[in-house]
Design a protein around this nucleic acid. Structure first.
Lengths: 332, 332
DNA sequence: TTCATCAAGGAAAACGTATTCTGGATTTTC
DNA sequence: GAAAATCCAGAATACGTTTTCCTTGATGAA
C-alpha cells in the first residue's frame, strides 16, 4: 500500500534480467534442479547486479517453515536467561534461524498472548526459560518445545537443566581437597529449589565435615554478612564457608574481613553462579561455580533443531557446571 | 514436507465449515467488507470451533508488512541494552509486532550477516543499540531505523539518547542543595564519551564548588577505592563525591568507611546508573541517577512505529534521567 | 529410421491470506 | 411497475517463493 520507494527486486526481476523463467532462477539460486552451469552463473550475476535478497515470507509460505523460533522467558531481569538467550541465538543464527523474544514478566495472560502470537507466526519451535530452577507447567502448543533452566513437569518433554547438585558438590569437594574439615553452608531461601538442591549436595558431599545445618536466608550480601555473625557465635572454629550464591559469598567475605578473619587463610569461601560483577569485585575474588549458561543455550537450541527436524530427544538433560578457582580459596 | 500431524486449520476450513467463501470468511474475521452480522457471527463461531489462528506468513505476504522488527545490539552483556529491549518489546507486542533479536558481539561481519537476514525477512523496521554512548556509523538498509542509546553519526537519522549532561548535573545540583561546597568528581576513562559528558556537566554545574579536576579511571569499584586514597591525600577537606557510575561510588563508599569517614555525614556520595545490584547493596545505599532505559526503549519503539507508518521524526532526542535519592546523601 | 533416454528449462500449482472486482438479490424511488 | 440504488457475498487476483510436472530438443542405442 504505502509505496516504500522503489520496492526491492523480486526473483521475477532477476529472472527477467537473466532471460530465464522464475522457476529457473529459483533453481539457479538454490542450487537445485538441472541447469547448465553457465545458466546458473548468469542468474547469479543478475541477482548480484540487482542486489536481490530473497523474501523469506514467500519462502516461508512455500516451504511450510518460518525459519523462526520463539523464546519465552519469565525472567525480565535477565540475570539467567540472557546468557541462555545469547547461546541459543548463537546456534540458531548459524542455521539462518531468527529468534523472537517474548518476555512474559511472569504474567500468565501475557504468556497466553505470546503463545498465540508465536503460533500465528508458525514458528518452527519454542524455547521456554525462566529465572528459577523449579519445574514449570508445560505449555500446550502444536509445535516442538524445549525447556531450558526451568524444566517441564512433564518428563516426556525435552528439558535442559543445570546440574546444580554436581555444581555444589564440586565446591565442597574442592574445599575438602584443600584440607578444610569444618565447613559451613550458607544459602538462599529454603523455599527455593536451587537452594534446596545445593544444600543437599553440600550435606551429602561434606559428610561429617559439615558444621551445623545449612543456613537459609535471602540471596543477598546482607544475609551473607548477617549469617557470618550468627555462624561465628555458635561455631567459631569453622575453616570454610560454601555459599549458595556469589552475592552471599561476597557478603561473607566482607564481614569476615571486617571481623579480622583472613580469607582464605583462616576461612576459605566459595560462591556460586560466577556472576562476574560479584565474583570478581569481591575481596578476595571468589572461587565459584560457573553455570555455563551460554552452553546451555546452545545445547537447548540444538535439541530444538533436532526436534524440529523430526528426531526429538525427550527427557531431562543436566549439563555439567565448571568450578572456577580464585583467591577466596587459593590465596594469592 | 514433514507432516506435523494434523496441520492447523486454514481460513478455507473455517469458510467451509461456515458455508461461505474464503473471502467472506476473511472479511468476517477482520471486520472489513460488507457482511450481514449473522454471517460474521457464523464465521466467528466456526473459527472458534476449529481453533483457527490466522497464519501470519500469509498475512505478511498479502499485506506487504511482516509485523516484525529487528533489534540489533552490540552489547552482549546486556547491562544497558536489556532494559531498552524490554521497553521496546513492551510497546511493540501491544501492537502485535514481534521483535527478533540480533547480537552482533561487536563483530562487523556478524552485523552484516544480521542485516542481510533482517532485510530478507522484510522486517518493518530496525532498532540499533549498543553499550556505549558514542555515536556510531549508521547502517544502510532500505527500512526505517531508529538508534537507541548510541546515536547515529548522521543527524538526519532518528536517534534516542540519554540526557547524560542533565543527569550528571542533577546529582551535583542535589549535592549543592544539601549545602556541600567542596565536591570531587570521580569517573571512568577519559576516552569514554559518557565519562566526558558527565565530567563536563559536573564541572559546569559545581562551578567553584568543584575540588580539583575530574578524576578519570576504570569503571570499577577498585578504581573508586583507589581514587579515594589519592583524593584524600591532596584534598582532605572534601565534603562530597560525585561519581560517574554506581560501581565507582560503591568503591568510594567502601573505602571511606574503612578510613573512618562517615557517609553521608562527613562526605556525601552519589552514583550513576541506578544499577540496583550496586546501588542497593552499597553501604549506605546510593543516591544515583536512573537512566530510565525501559522508557527509552518504549520511546524508541514508538518512534519506529511512527517511521514505519510513514511519518518519521528525524533528529536526536535526549530523554531526561531521574534522580533517585538514598542514604548516601540523605543519611537515615 | 525409430524409439528410449536424458539434459535443460518453462508452465503451472501450491503455500494462506487480503482485497478488488463483479454480479445477483433486495430494497428504494419516482 | 420499471429504474435505480443498496446490500451481500462469491470469484478472481495478488503477494513472492518453491516445487512438481511437462515440453522440447538432443543424444544414443537398436
Amino acid at each position: 500500500m504505502a509505496s516504500r520507494g522503489p520496492s526491492l527486486p523480486r526473483i521475477t526481476d532477476v529472472a527477467a534480467l537473466a532471460g530465464v523463467s522464475t522457476s529457473t532462477a529459483s533453481k539457479a539460486l538454490n542450487d537445485t534442479g538441472q541447469l547448465r552451469e553457465e545458466t546458473r552463473e548468469r542468474v547469479r550475476r543478475a541477482a548480484e547486479q540487482l542486489g536481490f535478497t530473497p523474501d523469506s515470507r514467500g519462502r516461508a509460505l512455500s516451504s511450510g517453515r518460518s525459519f523462526t523460533v520463539g523464546l519465552i522467558t519469565t525472567d525480565s531481569s535477565g540475570r539467567f536467561s540472557i546468557p541462555i538467550m545469547l547461546g541459543a541465538e548463537d546456534t540458531l543464527s548459524a542455521g539462518e534461524m531468527a529468534l523472537v523474544l517474548c518476555d512474559t514478566r511472569d504474567d500468565p495472560l501475557r504468556e497466553q498472548h505470546y503463545l498465540r502470537s508465536l503460533v500465528s507466526r508458525r514458528v518452527d519451535g519454542i524455547i521456554v526459560t525462566g529465572r528459577r530452577t523449579e519445574p514449570r507447567a508445560p505449555i500446550d502448543v502444536p509445535i516442538p518445545v524445549v525447556y531450558a533452566f526451568s524444566p517441564s513437569t512433564d518428563p516426556a518433554d525435552i528439558s535442559v537443566i543445570v546440574d546444580d547438585h554436581g555444581g555444589a558438590a564440586s565446591t565442597v569437594q574442592h574445599l575438602l581437597s584443600l584440607g578444610r574439615r569444618r565447613i559451613a553452608h550458607i544459602t538462599g531461601p529454603a523455599t527455593h529449589h536451587s537452594a534446596q538442591v545445593r544444600a543437599a549436595a553440600a550435606v551429602a558431599t561434606a559428610g561429617s565435615s559439615l558444621v551445623g545445618e545449612p543456613m537459609h536466608g535471602e540471596w543477598s550480601e546482607r544475609w551473607g554478612r548477617h549469617a557470618v555473625d550468627v555462624l561465628l557465635r555458635s561455631n567459631p572454629e569453622i575453616d570454610a564457608v560454601s555459599c549458595g550464591s556469589d552475592q552471599i559469598a561476597r557478603g561473607v567475605c566482607d564481614r569476615l574481613r571486617e571481623l579480622g578473619r583472613s580469607v582464605p587463610d583462616d576461612i576459605a569461601v566459595t560462591g556460586y553462579d560466577n556472576w562476574s560483577v560479584m565474583a570478581l569485585a569481591s575481596r578476595p575474588p571468589l572461587t565459584t561455580v560457573d553455570l555455563e549458561l551460554e552452553e546451555l543455550g546452545r545445547r537447548t537450541a540444538n535439541l530444538l533443531l533436532d526436534a524440529i527436524a523430526g528426531s526429538p530427544h525427550p527427557g531431562e538433560m543436566a549439563l555439567p557446571t565448571r568450578l572456577v578457582t580464585r583467591e577466596s580459596t587459593l590465596g594469592t
